[in-house]
Design a protein around this nucleic acid. Sequence first.
RNA 1: GCCGUCGUAGCUCAGUGGUAGAGCGCAUCCUUGGUAAGGAUGAGGUCCAGAGUUCAAUCCUCUGCGACGGCACCA
Length: 637
Amino acid sequence: MISITLPDGSVRAFDGAVSGADIAAAIGPGLAAAALAMRADGVLMDLKAVIDSDARVEIVTGDSEDALELIRHDAAHVMAEAVKELYPETQVTIGPAIENGFYYDFARPTPFTPEDLEAIEARMREIVERDEPIERELWDRDEAVTLFEKMGERYKAEIIAGIPSGEAIALYRQGDFVDLCRGPHLPSTGKLGKAFKLTKLAGAYWRGDSNNEMLQRIYGTAWADKKQLADYLHRLEEAERRDHRRLGREMELFHFQDEASGMVFWHPKGWTLYRLLVDYVRRKLDKAGYVEVNTPQLVDRTLWEASGHWEKFGEHMFTIEADDRTLALKPMNCPCHVQIFRQGIKSYRDLPLRMAEFGSCHRDEPSGALHGLMRVRAFTQDDAHIFCTHEQITAEAAAFCELALGMYRDFGFTDVAIKFADRPPGRAGSDAVWDRAEAALEAAAEAAGIGYTLNPGDGAFYGPKLDFVLRDAIGREWQCGTFQVDFVLPERLDASYVGEDGERHRPVMLHRAILGSIERFAGILIEHYAGRFPLWLAPVQAVVATITRDGDAFAAEAAESLRAAGLRVELDTSNEKIGYKVRLHSVRKVPLLLAVGKREAADRTVSIRRLGGADQEVLALDEAVARLVAEASPPAA
RNA sequence: GCCGUCGUAGCUCAGUGGUAGAGCGCAUCCUUGGUAAGGAUGAGGUCCAGAGUUCAAUCCUCUGCGACGGCACCA
């Protein structure tokens, strides 16, 4: 007798070993038809897998996370089967489920074309129609290697050869297609359904290593039903609509051009946004006890050699030869800040010293990495380095977390995840130093009372870090802030202070940024707000638009009053109807439109229309100015 | 950097081996209007750059530059 406990707590008894399909059938024919897989004692398994002892079992059906994972994984297999049928000379490699979909990497001499993609998708639909049973088989490792070698599947054979000898290997077979796979899978290809679509072609390195050959990757998306698929495609459109490169052009914020690849030409409106961000950060840092500095753009390579950056990142620095010396455009600010710290003798009484700089940096990023404002070659960090004692790390970390989270809130980012990144493979400093740095940062994170997840091996080369990841208005994640503990650089660049005991000590350096790069943060904000900035950040806050020429003089006066009160205002007396002006300035995403016609001019009022709103509010000019000024005041003003 | 796609008017994009088009925008004129596009006329192009094939190249080939989608990278 075997007792199977179901999620509702009920228990069913079976005479002997049972499969998930048996259990589903015992519960009801509806469930048996809908069943895709099962979760037995927490482990996701094939529906056909057999259970021979008591267990808690949940039948997985089409509307769960598990089901989506299975559907996507199967979609990858069905795609590989379709490719092998259409292009038998192609070798298969790996094909996992990923967020929103799946991909499969293929090896073949000639690349796929978009027409191939259509053919493959059509064949996939046929395979779903065929409803081929998906069978799991266990093979001996060496026999499996031989099998795939015979099939000419060199990559699969290589993967299997990497699995310890003697271990059983799971193969999945559907129709004539066999693939190495851990599983689990759907019972048959028909269960995949119709809600999938191949989305793009791309190159990808074998085993993710740029020293290896390039494979052909096909991406697809797959969902439980057509509505989910349509929703997803709609989300993609929404993201495209928000693309900061497009909005940047449409809203006249910035542009790029060939002669300065990866560097921004900020236009007046974009630069207004940029300045507002810098001004905001400066006010926050002033309040938080930071001092601001500014350091040279060009610094001799010997400093970068001393800091360790030359060895690690020298290839990505822009350099200039002058007077028999090599100067590098600074890729970061920390070594320069240490130089300021080293001037004169520092006492423990000077610590913590919080040294901030809107540090303009240049990095020769690989051409393929460039992406609008998000990845550029010239940018400015809201950078700061806190020089402090070991004992002060905890309090500084806590204060930083509070400052950063508060600033993110001011931009409407309330969902912030924190990741703890520990020692990377290529690093400076001894293990003992890393032990201390990681322990200190961990204690600081605990003290700050923030929850975090572990991100192993992703620390900076000189120390562990906390990374702050923001979730934007449409659910995408952006890593912005960082807080890094560094025991290495002060040593390398010989920073010291005199302690209470009269001896010299090494300070700890805390590298920290909140927005990260101003350029990138501006890009994130453009997408987060879809160009509809809150009033305090809008490059143009209001347009005063006339309805007839009778309003021209008073409209000019109204615009001037608002401007004098500190608002960013434009005047539109153009020869167009008010409907046209409303549309024009709505498309430009100006938050406020103040209409002035015959009535307003006579009464000294303005008719206020808010972006996206349907109605208007008529206010006396003086009152409107007072109200809007109050409304437009930035946080932390 | 690697794989693929692409580069035509300010923007979005058609198009052709015989030097080119649309919509929007822009300019001028008519129109003075009440909350998401009033009408007419007009200007505007080294078809990314260089080399090659050809009687002839924006179109075909090669090289370079840049952009886009991924991969790799990201102090």
